[in-house]
Design a protein around this nucleic acid. Structure first.
Length: 596
RNA sequence: GGCCCUGUAGUUCAAUGGAUAGAAUAGGAGUUUCCUAAACUCUAGAUCCAGGUUCGAUUCCUGGCAGGGCCA
């Protein structure tokens, strides 16, 4: 990065010296040179033709000559149309390379002094996690890691949706049909056990609706009048009144679910600094509504309901509190935003929530702004699209969901099968092999879900989507394993590769320079990923780096090299690639194996 | 009906307004006495449509079309 800044500076000077125009160096953008042309960085001259009063080629030529003469970093140049391609001196690449070797925190920003809260996962407690939750969890965890690397203080929180009609449905079905079965007696993971009763409720509920419709009732009416629905609603009421029996059942069933979630979270490698529970937050927000009325930014309608007028913001009028004084979703979200801010005064609050809530978050942010809350501006909805299956949309009630636990297990089985077919587990203990399968499975899955722009819907094909070849997690992991083998061998042979061991080395191969170019990009990539909340930027980088290295690995021999300086340099280069691959993958929540 | 998001090779994904639109996979042709072939090399194949802004548009604007979502 310092290299690009230096070159931009030189171009700025050249523009002034040659043409007498003043262009700030920070506004001079360089782009990577396309690989069919010689050079590393390209400066586009088209935008300056009017100011300078010369043609794009002329400007390029003049700039190139000036830079070759005056800028010590520039070795040579060529001009193609309005594109000035600049070649960088080899010793400059090596200087940069030595610089990153000496800097253990290369790519990590200094502490920013900013607090960022990242809320993600936020499951319902009536059923187990599915594929869509995995996208959420991986995104949230990765974004948190990326923000940390950008120097922010990060708090990861999980707002568990542990109350409401949905959990009452599971509870009711359990009371009717459960026969006191427990995770222990059934052998089912707690969240799956509770999920089973959610499905059973739905099945019975549908039958009851059908029966009522057959008796001549209107379908909408039947949905409201079905006996189990009435009972579930009654149960919710009792829960709110603190009924001992209902609360006790609720606690028991939730504890099963939490045990199940804990296990899944551990398996997929995500964690949280703090949990919030909706049962503790659902009454919040009413004070803020009152505050809004006092400040006259909210208003009351005749029936007593409270609204906010957001038509000035391009939104609608939005209900904040019902006429009978009961909350709607947005009410508690207002209160929870305040609670979170009181707990951890944040500059940014990231909500990792599916894109069906886009409108909801616009309203939340706008309403908090109306209230004049200092934290409103920092609210950011990290919206992501659904994960579709080849058969279409996942629907939990129709049983077309991909269960998270099952999917992870299938991935592990696939990893085992592939590894065994390739005969790659010689010398592994059974425990090591198991660990490797898990690492590969999670690497494939996380990489697959994170390499895509979050806001796009994505397609998941269980048969085809998870590959271990090409642009995949295991490809990147494989690169790390290869390098690990090289470093082990270097260790066995007692070969040193600290900077002093290649002091006089200077003849860089093209592929070696390519690799260094990728390495140099690392800090800018981390920053960009942080600014955009985009793990995909990191994933693409890790892939490009691994690919550049594999090309190098294929073309250039390390241990057959007779020049000791060159050999040491190549080992050092490999070690640096391994380091950035490891760090990039860590930002995605993916581990890398020493061998595979 | 109003608002929001998305449309790129057969398929799954890339591309701060820049060059001949990149990858992967599937297809075709190769690379193994040499550090791990889960790799590498070559080949063929795409911007939903119509306008506009610009030296230059996959990208920005307008209007369609298609898919998805939200609000009544």
């Amino acid at each position: 990065m310092q290299l690009q800044n230096a070159i931009s500076q030189s171009i700025s000077q050249a523009l002034h010296a040659l043409f007498g125009i003043t262009v700030d160096a920070s506004s001079i953008a360089l782009q990577p040179t396309r690989k069919e042309f010689a050079g590393s960085f390209t400066f586009v001259t088209f935008p300056y033709t009017k100011q300078v009063g010369k043609g794009p080629e002329q400007i390029g030529q003049a700039l190139g000559e000036y830079l070759k003469e005056h800028a010590k970093e520039i070795k040579d140049f060529n001009v193609v149309k309005g594109f000035l391609n600049l070649e960088v001196e080899e010793r400059e690449w090596l200087r940069l390379f030595r610089g990153m070797m000496a800097d253990a925190t290369y790519g990590h920003a200094e502490p920013s002094g900013r607090n960022v809260m990242v809320e993600y996962s936020s499951p319902n407690t009536n059923k187990p996690l599915h594929l869509g939750h995995l996208r959420n969890n991986f995104l949230g965890y990765s974004v948190a890691e990326i923000l940390k690397a950008n120097g922010h203080e990060v708090m990861k929180v999980n707002l568990v949706n542990d109350r409401g009609i949905h959990i009452c449905k599971s509870m009711l079905a359990y009371e009717k049909l459960g026969h006191d079965e427990t995770p222990e007696t059934s052998g089912l993971k707690g969240d799956h056990l509770v999920g089973k009763y959610y499905v059973l409720f739905d099945r019975a509920y549908k039958e009851q609706i059908d029966a009522l419709v057959e008796q001549g009732m209107d379908k909408e009416e039947a949905k409201k009048k079905a006996p189990w629905m009435l009972e579930a609603q009654d149960m919710l009421l009792k829960w709110e009144q603190g009924d001992a029996h209902v609360v006790s059942l609720w606690k028991t069933m939730n504890s099963w679910v939490y045990a199940g979630f804990d296990e899944t979270y551990r398996t997929i490698g995500v964690d949280f600094d703090k949990f919030y529970y909706e049962s503790g937050t659902y009454t919040l927000g009413k004070e803020l509504v009152e505050e809004g009325l006092l400040k006259e930014v909210f208003f009351k309608k005749e029936n007593g309901s409270v609204w906010v007028d957001l038509t000035g913001e391009g939104l609608d009028e939005k209900l904040l509190l019902r006429g009978d004084g009961t909350s709607v979703y947005i009410t508690q979200d207002l209160g929870t935003a305040q609670l979170k801010y009181d707990d951890f005064p944040y500059d940014q609050s990231v909500y990792v929530v599916a894109d069906e809530q886009n409108y909801h978050f616009q309203v939340l942010k706008a309403a908090l702004k109306k209230l004049g809350k200092p934290y409103a501006e920092g609210i950011y909805h990290l919206s992501y699209g659904m994960v579709d299956l080849p058969s279409g949309k996942m629907k939990s009630r129709e049983g077309t969901v991909v269960d998270a636990d099952e999917l992870v297990q299938e991935m592990i089985d696939t990893a085992r099968q592939q590894t065994e077919e390739l005969g790659k587990i010689e010398g592994f203990t059974p425990e090591q092999a198991q660990e490797l399968y898990h690492t590969l499975a999670m690497g494939a899955l996380k990489y697959f879900l994170l390499k895509v722009d979050p806001k796009k819907r994505m397609l998941f094909n269980p048969q085809e989507s998870i590959d271990f070849r090409g642009n995949t997690g295991p490809f990147v992991q494989y690169t790390h394993a290869r390098i690990s083998a090289i470093l082990r061998k270097a260790g066995e042979m007692g070969i040193k590769y600290e900077p002093a061991s290649f002091d006089n080395f200077e003849n860089l191969h093209e592929v070696e320079q390519e690799v260094i170019t990728q390495l140099v990009n690392f800090p800018a990539v981390v920053r960009e990923a942080g600014n955009l909340y985009a793990p995909s930027v990191i994933a693409n980088y890790a892939y490009e780096l691994a690919k550049a290295y594999n090309r190098f690995y294929q073309e250039i021999s390390i241990f057959n090299e007779t020049d000791e300086q060159a050999r040491s340099f190549r080992i050092a280069l490999s070690a640096m690639v391994a380091r950035f691959v490891r760090e990039s993958m860590k930002l995605l929540g993916i581990e890398v194996p020493e061998r595979m």
